[in-house]
Simulated assay, not measured.
Amino acid sequence: MQESRLKHESRTIKNLVEDYRAGRIVIPEFQREYVWRKSKAPLLIDSIYQNFPISSLLLWRSDAEVHARRATPRANRSGSTSWLIDGQQRVITLSKTIDGEDGIDGGFNPDTEEFKLSNAATRKNPDWIRVADIWSDEAFRRLRRQFDGSRQAERFEARLERVRRIRDYEVPIVEMVDHDFDDAVKAFERINTLGVRLKKEDIESARVAARHQRLIADEIVPYLHQIRQQGFQRLNVMHLFRACAFIARPDGRNRTPLHELDRKEVVGAWKQTKQATGQAIALIRSELGLINMDILWSGALMVPLIAICATVKARDRKADELVGWLALAALCRRYSGASETALEQDLRACKQSDPVRALLANLRTHRSTLLAEPKDFFRFAQRPQWPADPVHRQYESRRA
């Protein structure tokens, strides 16, 4: 028996689609259904147009008797078959887009270099050209004749040629050779259960880093590490971003993300955010006697506190009212549901003349009574990740 191995190569999109349609690349029965929304097709085509990577495909080469998931295209049994383990959504989308079939009829605007799904408006608008027509040799020859004599002909033709070269884009392929069926199924399961999706904080950090270079690496990450060492591990990048964006434009009607603000605004707001976060931590320690966030189960609980510390002068703040709201919000699990909506409501409350009263009003819409009930303490006591440390014992003694 031959030893299993991985073979690395690349194939053009044109060849991949031809192999899929000819049944040389087949969707195995254990694959999922095709689930991509049609709106993803223009994004995929645009990524290739921009020469961005679209990740590799995983194939399994086997002569074993395996059932295909889809009746069409029919599997070609004349030789060994390549079964598509990872990349089904991309391959099928490309196949559908090339001919504009099954409703995935893409359009391209050579002036703006945009891709979108064709609709009644784009079909009537001469500025939009079907991607399928650009990829068709016969249709493309007709298109070129339409541009002859226009001032923009050379520029448009160059962009249309670039769209045509999408078919020559080389996709990296990893092929499992001499693996058995169980290996193929295990590979599929692991790819679809162990994959790590980008979180919102990852995406927002990337956007901020792109707009404000060195701010993340030199300022935000070191400070986040510093406060986590102090026991406030539940504060994350997004919490600090939300507070910072509020501080940058506390009077704004709508929230403006940091990556849309100019650098001067962000740098100034970040300095205030650090100072206000320090003040909020000091309040929690002095007024509640807490040394970490074991009881404060979400970092979102600190965002309104930081916002108020930054925008309300110290002499006008009432520490007992602030930490009173914080304790009630923690007991009522204020951000356990639609946390983004709740946080947006509470940051709007922070703009009011009496922010604590406005925050309490928000809590009352979340819960009929603000009086602590036995079940509130029971929820905390049952959290298995809490260590039996002095802070936990201190909370239990207060409850008693």
Rank of each mutant, 00 (worst) to 15 (best):
Q88S: 05
S55M: 09
A22M: 01
R253V: 04
I134G: 01
F52M: 14
V237K: 14
T369C: 07
D180Q: 06
E265C: 00
S205I: 02
A319T: 12
I295C: 06
K318S: 10
Y395K: 05
K186N: 11
R141Q: 13
I191H: 04
V237P: 06
C244D: 01
Y34K: 00
G195C: 00
L331Y: 04
K274C: 09
D294Y: 06
A248T: 03
A210I: 04
A381N: 11
K375M: 10
N254W: 03
A400E: 11
M293L: 06
Q152C: 03
R37A: 15
H67I: 09
C350R: 00
V221S: 12
F108D: 03
M302I: 14
S78M: 07
L296R: 03
F188T: 07
A349N: 02
L44S: 07
A71W: 12
I295E: 12
K124W: 00
S47R: 00
R399C: 07
L58E: 08
A75T: 11
R151N: 12
E265D: 13
W36L: 05
G278R: 13
D218F: 00
V91S: 03
R32K: 02
Y395L: 15
G231A: 05
I191Y: 08
A338Q: 13
E18S: 14
L359H: 01
L283A: 03
I129N: 05
D102L: 13
P222G: 10
I92T: 12
P110F: 00
I191E: 09
Y335G: 01
W135E: 06
Y49M: 04
I281Q: 08
V267Q: 10
A319V: 03
L16I: 14
I134E: 00
Q385V: 14
R123Q: 11
R348I: 04
Q213G: 04
L370S: 00
I295M: 15
